[in-house]
Amino acid sequence: MTESSPTRDPARMPPWLFRTIAGAVAAVVLVVAYLVGSVTLPSLWAKAVVGQLGGQPGNSVPLGMFYGFTFTFAPLLLAWQCRRRRLPKAARVALAATAVVLTIPNLLTLGVMYGGGPTAVDARALWLTEANWFGTWSQIFMLCGAVCAVAGIALGRTWLRRGREVRMLKAAQSRGRGNPGVDAPKAAGAARAAQPGTPDVSGAQAPDSRGAETAHESPAP
């Protein structure tokens, strides 16, 4: 009896075609979002920053330090956690999405500082009069946040690896204390083998014992 091969549903879209259409739609959405955002977001972000200063341009320095450091340090740490395979896939996706969202303030700042559109030019002019130091100190502390995040990740990995090594060493020591009879013969054999000119007693006695057993078992003539 032969098994019939499963027939493919002709109405179902092939996976490659679905992925192609989804990628094209996503690309179109991103392009439209970029065009709309480049026209509206720089001006909105510049006004939002000026509104947070409370009429005091000197507050632009600590505000730029806060935005630059926080919204670089936190996204990098969250993005690093996404590589942990122990986490569920949904949790990793949520961490990645949160990391992307947290980078938006710094991306908007960079868009205002280096954008070539008329909206970005107007936003820079507003910052020059109302928040002159915000962009500069924000970029400086973006670099500081990135350096601190990389250093924290490196130190964290070193600390975790050292902790695993200490736990393994303690586990090996506890096993050795729990089974002294198993490790003692091995240690004694290793000590005898390390001494020069010491014959191997176990190997020399083995044939004699077997010969004695054979002589004892053989019948008398």
Results as ranks from 00 to 15, higher is better:
residue 52 Q to V: 14
residue 98 T to Y: 01
residue 83 R to F: 14
residue 74 A to K: 00
residue 84 R to F: 08
residue 168 M to C: 03
residue 216 H to C: 10
residue 136 T to M: 06
residue 106 N to F: 03
residue 46 A to L: 02
residue 45 W to S: 11
residue 186 K to T: 15
residue 217 E to R: 15
residue 99 A to C: 04
residue 41 L to D: 08
residue 217 E to D: 14
residue 45 W to I: 01
residue 51 G to V: 04
residue 190 A to P: 01
residue 43 S to Q: 09
residue 145 G to A: 01
residue 55 G to A: 12
residue 113 M to A: 15
residue 166 V to K: 08
residue 97 A to Q: 07
residue 153 I to E: 03
residue 96 A to E: 06
residue 191 A to D: 10
residue 169 L to G: 13
residue 166 V to P: 02
residue 178 G to T: 13
residue 58 G to H: 03
residue 152 G to N: 10
residue 198 T to W: 00
residue 81 Q to E: 11
residue 119 T to C: 00
residue 154 A to C: 02
residue 106 N to G: 08
residue 18 F to M: 11
residue 215 A to H: 04
residue 185 P to T: 01
residue 137 W to K: 07
residue 159 W to P: 00
residue 162 R to G: 09
residue 106 N to L: 08
residue 45 W to H: 08
residue 49 V to I: 15
residue 120 A to G: 05
residue 28 V to G: 04
residue 17 L to I: 08
residue 193 A to G: 12
residue 8 R to M: 08
residue 166 V to N: 01
residue 76 L to G: 03
residue 76 L to S: 10
residue 122 D to G: 10
residue 55 G to T: 10
residue 73 F to G: 01
residue 109 T to L: 09
residue 89 K to V: 15
residue 36 V to W: 01
residue 175 R to Y: 11
residue 141 F to A: 13
residue 34 Y to D: 08
residue 115 G to L: 05
residue 41 L to M: 07
residue 175 R to D: 15
residue 36 V to M: 04
residue 203 G to P: 00
residue 29 V to Q: 08
residue 189 G to R: 13
residue 137 W to N: 11
residue 158 T to S: 09
residue 143 L to F: 06
residue 125 A to N: 14
